[in-house]
Design a protein around this nucleic acid. Sequence first.
DNA 1: GAATAAGCGAGACGGTACGTCGGGTCTTACG
DNA 2: CGTAAGACCCGACGTACCGTCTCGCTTATTC
Lengths: 193, 193, 193, 193
Amino acid sequence: MKGPHPGGRPVNEQAGAALLEAARALVAEHGYDKVSMQMIADHAGVGRQTAYRRWPSKADLVLNAFLNYSRQMNVIEPGPVVPMVERFLSQIFADINAVHGRAIRSLIAAAQDDAEFKESFDKQFVKPRDLILLRILRHGVEQGEIPESANLNLVIDAIHGAFWYRLLLGRRLTTRYARELAAYAIHGVHAAA
Amino acid sequence: MKGPHPGGRPVNEQAGAALLEAARALVAEHGYDKVSMQMIADHAGVGRQTAYRRWPSKADLVLNAFLNYSRQMNVIEPGPVVPMVERFLSQIFADINAVHGRAIRSLIAAAQDDAEFKESFDKQFVKPRDLILLRILRHGVEQGEIPESANLNLVIDAIHGAFWYRLLLGRRLTTRYARELAAYAIHGVHAAA
Amino acid sequence: MKGPHPGGRPVNEQAGAALLEAARALVAEHGYDKVSMQMIADHAGVGRQTAYRRWPSKADLVLNAFLNYSRQMNVIEPGPVVPMVERFLSQIFADINAVHGRAIRSLIAAAQDDAEFKESFDKQFVKPRDLILLRILRHGVEQGEIPESANLNLVIDAIHGAFWYRLLLGRRLTTRYARELAAYAIHGVHAAA
Amino acid sequence: MKGPHPGGRPVNEQAGAALLEAARALVAEHGYDKVSMQMIADHAGVGRQTAYRRWPSKADLVLNAFLNYSRQMNVIEPGPVVPMVERFLSQIFADINAVHGRAIRSLIAAAQDDAEFKESFDKQFVKPRDLILLRILRHGVEQGEIPESANLNLVIDAIHGAFWYRLLLGRRLTTRYARELAAYAIHGVHAAA
DNA sequence: GAATAAGCGAGACGGTACGTCGGGTCTTACG
DNA sequence: CGTAAGACCCGACGTACCGTCTCGCTTATTC
């Protein structure tokens, strides 16, 4: 991107990676506010300032720790829209159940008392996922499965909202729930339960 | 119920009440972690130790401030189910927009790092509202507007989830959104946007 | 002194005595500011308020604890003045070495940051002992051992001052020191060492 | 002596110095336990934690404030011994009356509940002054004003003791008292009052 | 023998200081 | 000029003690 630095010591790329990994692991294990910057830096074998040089605050560091980690979402294969949504949700649920549930909840929490971080979080975490869902739904419109007149934002809110609701309340997120939610969101209450 | 205290100056109930009210008001205005125990105690006209005598930590005080604060919702007049849901949501949105938005968000946040509080919050705040919605939906089933086979929990998750999603992301919760969400949740994507 | 109370429960004399004894024992063992009123009251099996009903502050209680304890000083038998002073000092030193050294030091210390208490201490502890010494010295004047022109206050300051000086610095207060100091104070540097 | 620190921002020596000076000045003015760490830190223009980084507690800070503060006394001109003692005392009294009376009293007090501090105080404050007095007295012995057989430690105790006694009791320390005490200590009760 | 009055144990109360901790900034020596 | 180390300012945390207050109970005197 940026031309190489004119002089001086080059940035240690590994330090940033180590910080992200340390942040991810620690927050996943202990929760956001039981983890301090000192802990993260120590765990990464790095100075604390090195973290602040890369991210403006603890919240941003931790957010990016999870963005980087889960950035590579598998592309959803085109097809009928309900299975696409279902596969999208299943991927997320699998990730949540395996490792990131605790951390994502902590991040949502952290965003509630930090406007600046909320903006980052919205932009880097929420919006991209909304967008993936939007693309899937538009595909459904093109396929004629969803009427042109439908308010897709409502559908997105319902899907992601139901997901967050259960996540934040500590309720289970199963493959079956992914299937049922997808069917309901697209086909309404008439979909088989 | 419980026998009176064995001796000593009796607890000043007003002090506890003043602390709860102060905590509620301050957290509602500024958010959980912008509020300190000192602020709460000062605002309640009470010593800081008096707060710690009643609750072991700031988190416990603030949580109780909202648990004991159960806003009795107006009964929803029976009728067609979509307007009932719409009225239910409008009531909530009005409250959120007027005063409690900030506080509810802070509480949801606080619950993410405190299992005990999460349980109380779920039981005293979330579940009762789920139940109101469930009654409305069951009314719809009885009226024949919603098929018997429908998975009502999904509908509840979608409605409350969409609400939380927008609340937590700081998006607007308008009367219009209440109408659209109600229509979509019951009649699906075919409902006029 | 005062006529008996017109009505109401009489003061429990034992409670006061128990408080004094508890204060004395605890301060002698742990030092003034490691001991709290709660500790003293508990140790005396008495309510804290019962202590404050009798003495206006912790410092006053502790002071009286030692006054009462050491009030009964043996009368010094008349005779040549130097042995009288020596016996006076020996009595004090014996008491100091046996139990009260720590406490007296703590009281002198406490008086330095509490003007009101300093006054009590001066009046109830220092002045009476100055007075005993003064009587001894006057006896010496009457016997012709001390010239009429002598400034007895200087002698008192020197004797009690030397005692305090060594006490506060943790230096030993021996029978021999009592003898030497008495001789020096009355007969000056020519007294045999 | 000690190798420089291995890395990191160096300690700001001025902050430590400012803390010591602030502690000295405030304790001198208000007395030990009327002064809080917050007051000292504010007065020094420094964070409270910076004080705790250097000394483990308030007591240690205050004590060091005075230990490092060694008022170099003017040399006493040789001559007859009584005027020398008188001048020595006058110097001390002037200093006490001008500024340090309160602080010295607080320090003597503080030493009574802190063995470690007492030792430092003895070594750095008490002993040096005893030594000055000892030199004066030895000069008197050489001049034949004081007999060889005299126990000079007794004289020192009497002089410094009388001084402390009056200081701790809040009694006046005048030039006249210095003269009288010097005369009495050297020439005994026969000295003109 | 009630009514009155005060002492008493218990413990809540307002206040103030303590010593600790974490966030985010800064300043050094080294690479 | 990036980095590790770590000092720095700020401000909240939860604890301890002081001296005061307020309750129910007990123990006397007075009517």
